[in-house]
Structures are given as C-alpha cells and as structure tokens.
Design a protein around this nucleic acid. Structure first.
Lengths: 144, 144
DNA sequence: TTAATAGAAGATAAAAAAGTCTTTTATTAA
DNA sequence: TTAATAAAAGACTTTTTTATCTTCTATTAA
C-alpha cells in the first residue's frame, strides 16, 4: 500500500508529534530507536519532511526535530502525498496510463470507490489523534 | 497497491479469458501486444500462473495459453494472492510485524476496514465479468 | 519424421527502492 | 569563543523488483 519510506515517515511523525506536545525536541537516534527504523535511513526521510515543511528542525545541542502546534491537524493523507505522491489516490488500479472515465480499465469504477475510501480514511486520521492514543498506551509504533 | 507483476497478470488473464471464450489459444507475443506488456516479462508471469493452475497452456504449433471454463469465476483476489501473496489483505498499514488487536498500530482499526473493502471488491470482480465488458468495448487493457 | 512453433527454465542485466557512511554546516551551552 | 552536538547533504552500497536474453524441451501439423 505505502512504500517503506512512507511507513517510516508516518511512524516518525506520530512519535515526534507526541514528544512535541511536551515541548521536547527529539534527535534522530531517539526517533530511530522509538519506531525501530534504520537510523541513517530515517534521517534522510526526516530531512525530506523538514524541507517540505511537515516537521521542523533545529541544529546544535538541545536541537532535534519537532512539530508546530498546527501540525497536530496534519493528516496521514498529507504525509502520504508528500512521500509517495498521489499515485495511490489518482492512479489506475491496473497501472494503465490512459485509464479514465472515457476509456476505463475493467476495474475502474470499483477501484475508484476503494480509493475514495482509502483517501477519506487517511484524511480523517490526524497526527494529533494518534498522539493521544499513544499516551494512553492504546497504540504502538514499534516494528517488532 | 499491486506490484507491476500483478498488474500485468490481471490484465493478461482478462485478455486470455476473453479469447478462450471463442475457443482460441493465444501466444505470448499476442498477449504482450494486446496488453502492452514486455514480452519476456509477461512470459515469466504466465508460466507462474500456469504452474499455479490459474491458466492452462499447450506447447507446439497452434499452442498457447487459455483458460478453462471454470476460470471465468476466478476473481482478482485469487490472482493477487497468487502473485503478491496476501500481505495486502492481512498486513499492517504501517508495516509493523507485531501489530494486532492486542497491540494495534495507530491506524489499525481504520486500516482493517479499508482492507476489507479492498478484499470484497477484488473477490467480487470475476474474470468472466471483465470479458463481457471488453467485448462490448466498455473497457480497455492497453497501457498507453 | 521433421520442421516449425511455442512454452519452460535458468542466467543475466537494468532500474528502483532501501539502507549506510562520511563530510560539512549550523547552533548553542558552557 | 570554543567545543560539543545535531541536522544537512552527497556519495556509496545492498537488496528487490522489473526486464531481457539464451538454451532446452514438448507438441503438432504437414
């Protein structure tokens, strides 16, 4: 469904958001450990998210990654778009380039509904809501 | 959503099923052309589908691939399972290995519903139904 | 029975995705 | 102002996926 990069990005952002609520910035190492992701790889992803404005960062001692208050409204759809693009939301299920209403692939209509379903789920899933779940230990982020 | 291999497999099977209704067997070249897929690559995929019993084949002159009557009831879910496995139907949305009801990831419940939605769509989409659409030129299989 | 056809199988190559390492630059606490 | 810290950036490696090529084997029409 999502690329690994995207999965890591989502997990990282949920973790950072939670930490940020307490006013803390978190370093790459801590993030990598918390979500059980390869350190150097997640570092790249965080830089990308930062460049795209989804998270913030500060260098130097006491530095690290954090998110602004407003980012609690950031949805999974926003992250997926930033990392994987919107192929998942607009592309053809059978990978046909010119599939459209006029020249639909055999699963065009069914797939459209599935996609809308996915999209609305991801739109309504905000980072803020997840932080709360995590705090209450109602959800987890570790890979294994 | 699906791997390219799986996309090709679905398109190929729809095409073969349609031709088989008229009692024709089709060669790799014809299939590759019809669904605009790389010839050598689709050949591999067809061999795999054949080994797994989803399609039939016959060697020699006038040989080629075809499907049995019963295969018109074969669903997209069957093809996806054969090629991509059932990661899509059972795996965690965030790629967590130990995500389950007891230790759910933050999107566990939402994702479960999406997955069920995808699965029922793929289960109800039979190869036979597509052949009809194709015949009436209501749908297309070409990539570009 | 032979020539042509077509799939089967294995090796190889190219491209994309995932993951790692090293050097540089910015920041800040002391 | 300096030493320590942490992100930024670019090069590089590995793995997986996608794609191609070659040789072999089976089948059948003539």
């Amino acid at each position: 469904m999502f690329s690994k990069t995207c999965e890591y990005a989502i997990r990282a952002m949920i973790f950072i958001a939670q930490k940020s609520k307490a006013g803390n910035r978190v370093g790459v190492k801590e993030i990598a450990k918390a979500i059980d992701a390869p350190e150097y790889f997640i570092a790249k992803i965080l830089q990308d998210l930062s460049r795209k404005g989804l998270i913030q960062s500060m260098k130097g001692p006491t530095g690290g990654f954090y998110v602004e208050e407003a980012s609690s409204l950031c949805s999974l759809a926003d992250i997926v778009k930033a990392i994987d693009g919107n192929k998942l939301f607009t592309g053809c299920g059978l990978g046909l380039k010119n599939c459209n209403e006029l020249k639909p692939c055999p699963i065009h209509d069914q797939f459209k509904r599935v996609r809308e379903n996915i999209y609305s789920m991801l739109e309504n899933a905000t980072i803020g809501a997840f932080s709360k779940q995590l705090e209450k230990n109602l959800a987890f982020l570790k890979r294994k």
